[in-house]
Design a protein around this nucleic acid. Structure first.
Lengths: 355, 355
DNA sequence: AAATTATACGCAATCGCTTGCATAATATTA
DNA sequence: TAATATTATGCAAGCGATTGCGTATAATTT
């Protein structure tokens, strides 16, 4: 093995980055002038301004976050609160949100503090969240339907800007960004009905306390109602593959002539397909199955899953934009509540019967 | 729909949390005394101490992070740098690390700043990372094998505490925490040889620049050498399902009598199985396939994947512990480099031929 | 040219907490 | 009991920014 020569110089710690004072001295002006120049404030002569800017450039000045925060009461950090699923695979769908969130933060010069909250943590007061208590964030994105209403309310009432991701709170005007759940499921259900002439279609739904479940169920219902078909709804306590399997088993027993299933998400859909396979019913020949989310694995399944693509990355981006809007807006000035919807797209593959 | 009544009081913004001064006045002592009490420093009478503590409790005092940082030059934030995969599904395996990282941070009173760096960002100097430039973190966890050596070196040389997760840099003494890659793959390969009498076994490896790939390949090699079998190594530019499929196709053509494959990770293994299915070779009857990671879906695959379980959560936890150790240790005092290995576990399912 | 209004800039306080040093209070020793 | 060593506390100067207010210059108006 050949030794690799890196230019190691640990210990020669990087020089402390320069301060406003350094710039001020070198440019022969006062600290406050420098501050004003660097913050694009008016009232500074163009000549001075140029000189200061030049020196700042030369010294590679970067403002110290702590000092700035202390003076301005703003951190330029935002917090992302995710639910800590007991089952790790549940994280999959939301990981894409994070990508969008991260990118948009970077783009807008914000930093992202993340944290997971479990059932345990949600029993305590939300203001006990470390990042909130210690005033480390200017605002929060609360992601997913599993964050408890009381938790949300506590944060919202504290005055901290908050936006909900993939969730909403009835009776409040908390901003949120959501998938077009209803339309998405409506379309895929309609597809089953119109293209494949299914008559007996079940819906495997998540908890009724989750907005996305309710809305997706609504989409299912309206598609069925439109075709005068009878709905069959199955509620599950969560939306994992395992739960999907169980629900599907129940469904198959309770509805002998079942020919199609729309699942509240892809994980459940996969579970449903496994259940079918387990009792020897082929998908999609005997039972059609469709999902929601379009997670990576849905394409690789056999048969490939027909599903509704959720643009998680865009959702994340929108949430960040809105949150920063709230943060930077004048808190005294009333602003309209915003509910953003991000469109979905039908992804036709084979599990619906298409080929 | 029934209206839901929440106790909304937006605008009644939470009272600014109390400061040292508030406590000092109420307790009739000086600010510095309060500070000393709250930081458990010696030299304060037990009586005063008790009184201060009581008042602090009563006022629900929480120190302001910005002020504290400004004074101490420490943030109690650590940064997590992840590689921004082009293919979203690549995120899956590392998502578990994050859980451990987050938990351990919370436990130790630190906060987690996360960011994704893509190829683009890695071309710039690592010190340009926003969270580093603005001194928002006390240390960094650099996760995954795709972070460029030059990037790592730049950070390390700056004196910022750094620990590598699932990666290592030859010729440096940068701390890292790693899976027991070699042992893990050695075992699973041995299993194929000893329990299933395979003689022609290929290894589908990731880029040779990735430590985990090299080490896993080494495990494969030593198991084969031990049994005097001839190795067949296939290198891939990345480790997605798609790449795995392609690599497997090549392998099947180049080695007609191939009977088993060990994949550098589960995604690749899934790709390999798909390739087999595509040309009608059954797994495990005609070709055995095993993986590494034990991601959620590996159990659900048909056949269920035999693999090596990687304890990602523990890795993350260890990384945090070590990083904080570095952060809080005296920077002048030399400390030994640490390379932590987290053991793996063989998960026998059906894709190897067991039942 | 004197008076008035703008324009540029500096002074100094402030944000909330830490910490070296001085000093008052108490305990120890001779 | 006086002298000395301890212990407990306060003062005040930072840390690195922002910002209200005052003032010397320059520009404008009579």
């Amino acid at each position: 093995m050949q030794a690799i020569a890196y230019n190691l110089q640990k210990g020669i710690t990087v020089a402390n980055s320069s301060t406003l004072r350094d710039i001020a001295e070198k440019a022969g002006v006062s600290v406050s002038t420098v501050s004003r120049v660097l913050n694009d404030q008016p009232g500074i002569g163009s000549k001075t301004r140029a000189r200061v800017l030049a020196v700042a450039q030369e010294l590679q000045f970067v403002p110290n976050a702590a000092a700035r925060s202390l003076a301005t009461k703003r951190t330029r950090n935002i917090g992302l609160v995710n639910y800590k699923w007991a089952v790790p695979s549940q994280f999959v769908a939301s990981s894409l949100d994070s990508v969008g969130i991260d990118e948009e933060c970077q783009r807008l010069g914000y930093h992202l503090l993340t944290t997971l909250v479990g059932e345990q943590a949600m029993k305590r007061n939300a203001l006990q969240l470390p990042m909130v208590r210690e005033e480390r964030v200017d605002g929060l994105i609360l992601a997913g339907p599993a964050i408890k209403p009381s938790f949300i309310i506590e944060l919202y009432n504290s005055g901290l800007p908050v936006v909900l991701l993939d969730n909403r709170l009835r009776g409040t005007d908390i901003d949120c960004v959501l998938h077009e759940n209803e339309t998405g499921v409506y379309r895929v259900t309609q597809h089953l009905i119109q293209e494949h002439q299914h008559q007996v279609i079940a819906f495997l739904s998540g908890p009724d306390t989750w907005l996305s479940s309710r809305e997706r169920a609504a989409g299912y219902h309206s598609a069925l109602a439109e075709a005068s078909l009878e709905p069959h709804l199955f509620l599950m306590p969560d939306t994992t593959v395992e739960t999907g399997m169980k629900a599907m088993q129940t469904a198959l027993i309770k509805i002998p002539d079942l020919t199609a299933v729309v699942a509240v998400n892809d994980a459940v859909a996969v579970g449903a397909m496994r259940a079918c396979k387990a009792i020897g019913r082929s998908v999609p020949e005997q039972i059609a199955v469709v999902g929601f989310d379009n997670i990576g694995w849905s394409e690789l399944h056999d048969p490939p899953l027909t599903t509704v693509h959720a643009f998680g990355e865009d959702m994340g981006r929108q949430a960040v934009r809105r949150l920063i809007e709230l943060i930077e807006s004048d808190p005294n000035q009333e602003h309209a509540r915003l509910r953003l919807r991000v469109a979905t797209r039908l992804i036709i593959r084979r599990s619906c019967g298409c080929d």
